[in-house]
């Protein structure tokens, strides 16, 4: 990609124009996101299949998850997407202060999301519903999981940990990208003519958000809460 120097547009040697460079970058990230769709797609396929095969167990296990934390996390992540979108706008309109502030805000919201997610993971250890490592639910949790079959409930938690774990990994990568972006923004590298890295990172961040938009209903809302 391109190396930018403050205040002007640097065009990498393989490109003819800044338009070409910008379009190549955008197309590149969209193709990468298509790859990511298929990467998560394997997990979604497996999840959909087992949910269809073992619906009672999956619904029961889903009700173990804390719907309030899930909903709050969804709102947090959507807010971070909102601030990310505004960051791109700030870069487009060359508002440097706003750009830095919005990037920091986005990172904070991402961190809050991961914190809440971490707390939920902790809860799973307390409830002994971590597949393979510690799967021995007791008391009320056991009573709720037992009717659907513990084996298949464990399968649900496998998917829960794999899917949210892979998602969290993408969040962490995203935080790293945002941090680099923030440093470059503080170094005044971006301007109205050159903001492709902000846009590209933004697209990645929104994509990670979209994955969560689907994980939330699939994992937390399956069986209903009535």
């Amino acid at each position: 990609m391109s190396e930018a120097h403050s205040g002007r547009i640097h065009i990498a040697h393989q490109f003819e124009s800044s338009d070409q460079q910008h379009e190549a970058g955008t197309l590149g990230i969209w193709i990468f996101l298509a790859t990511e769709v298929m990467f998560f797609g394997g997990l979604f396929t497996g999840y959909a299949l087992d949910r269809w095969l073992y619906y009672p167990a999956f619904a029961a296990a889903s009700r173990i998850l804390d719907i309030r934390l899930g909903a709050i996390n969804t709102a947090v992540l959507l807010t971070s997407s909102f601030t990310m979108a505004l960051s791109v706008r700030a870069a487009q309109t060359a508002k440097r202060g706003a750009l830095a502030l919005l990037l920091i805000l986005t990172m904070l919201l991402g961190a809050v999301f991961l914190g809440i997610k971490g707390f939920e993971y902790y809860q799973k250890f307390v409830e002994h519903v971590v597949p393979s490592l510690d799967f021995a639910p007791q008391g009320e949790v056991l009573a709720r999981l037992a009717p659907g079959g513990l084996g298949h409930a464990q399968l649900f938690f496998c998917f829960y940990f794999f899917m949210t774990g892979l998602h969290a990994l993408h969040m962490i990568v995203g935080l790293g990208l945002l941090f680099v972006l923030l440093l470059r923004a503080l170094g005044s590298e971006f301007n109205a003519g050159y903001y492709a890295p902000v846009e590209v990172t933004g697209l990645y961040w929104h994509f990670v958000d979209i994955i969560w938009i689907f994980l939330f209903p699939l994992l937390y809302l399956i069986g209903g809460r009535f």
Binding site: A71, T74, L78, G224
Partner: peptide, 11 residues
């Protein structure tokens, strides 16, 4: 988000 969460409580 509020809608989808609320809908989960209705059968």
């Amino acid at each position: 988000v509020a809608l989808t969460t609320g809908a989960a409580f209705i059968d």
